[in-house]
Computed example of a mutant assay.
Amino acid sequence: MTAEADPAALARLPLDAQLTSLREILARNETLAEVVRRAAGLGLPGWYVTAGCVFQTVWNAVTGRPPTYGIRDYDLFYHDASDLSWAAEDAVIRTGREVFAGLPAEVEIRNEARVHLWYEAKFGVPCAPYPSSEAAIDSFAATTCCLGVRAEEDGGPWRVYAPHGLGDVFGLVLRPNPVLAPREVYETKAARWREAWPELRVLAWPGAAA
């Protein structure tokens, strides 16, 4: 691990320096960079590439692993409330299969405006309609996971959405976010991630034994 990739040092950097380091680290994941580039061409409203493929790329950098190590898929969120039918979302998913064809990764596309229609059946708790993709990212089971990026139309630096900052992401701290997902979702994900990244410090769900 190099000094510039030291998790404690990165976690203590000022936010502007953290953003610069984040963009540099993410750019080393060539698959992620290509997913973002192709996603920009889809023109989806309110889109972000988000979740594991982003924060796990950072974990890999600060633990000295290859950029794509442990990343199962690449999540692409967008928010389109103009048509909440499955047919409309499926049409976007089918287009995405063509756009992302040939990449060494699976890209999962979801219209976050539709999540409330199926969330309770899958996770056992109701979910209010999300007003934006940012609101959907806010509800991830861990605050550390609340991170999304997208390319701006002017070709400038990637836009970063990180409502809880970047300190925990760089510092390898997994912190629960008990706003929607049930405790078992957090603990299941945490256990799986600790197997791949044993350096993680997993904080207990509120009210649970450490």
Rank of each mutant, 00 (worst) to 15 (best):
D6I: 04
A9R: 15
A9I: 10
A9W: 04
L10W: 02
A11G: 08
D16N: 13
A27H: 08
E30M: 06
E34A: 09
E34D: 12
V35Q: 10
A40D: 07
G43F: 05
L44K: 11
P45S: 14
G46W: 00
Y48F: 15
G52T: 04
F55M: 11
F55A: 07
F55W: 11
T57C: 06
T57L: 02
W59C: 10
N60W: 04
G64F: 02
R65Y: 10
F77A: 15
F77S: 12
H79G: 13
H79N: 14
D80A: 10
A81W: 01
S85F: 02
S85D: 00
W86G: 14
V92Q: 03
T95A: 13
E98M: 11
V99W: 02
G102K: 15
E106F: 01
V107F: 08
E108T: 12
I109N: 06
I109D: 03
R110F: 01
N111A: 10
R114F: 00
L117R: 15
F123D: 08
A128N: 10
A128W: 01
S132W: 04
E134I: 05
T143A: 08
T144A: 09
G148F: 00
P157D: 06
W158C: 07
W158H: 11
A162Y: 02
P163V: 12
L166C: 13
L166R: 11
L166S: 12
V169P: 04
F170E: 08
V173C: 10
L180P: 01
P182E: 02
Y186H: 08
T188C: 06
E195Q: 13
W197F: 05
L200W: 02
L200Y: 04
R201E: 15
L203M: 14
A204P: 01
W205S: 10
P206W: 04
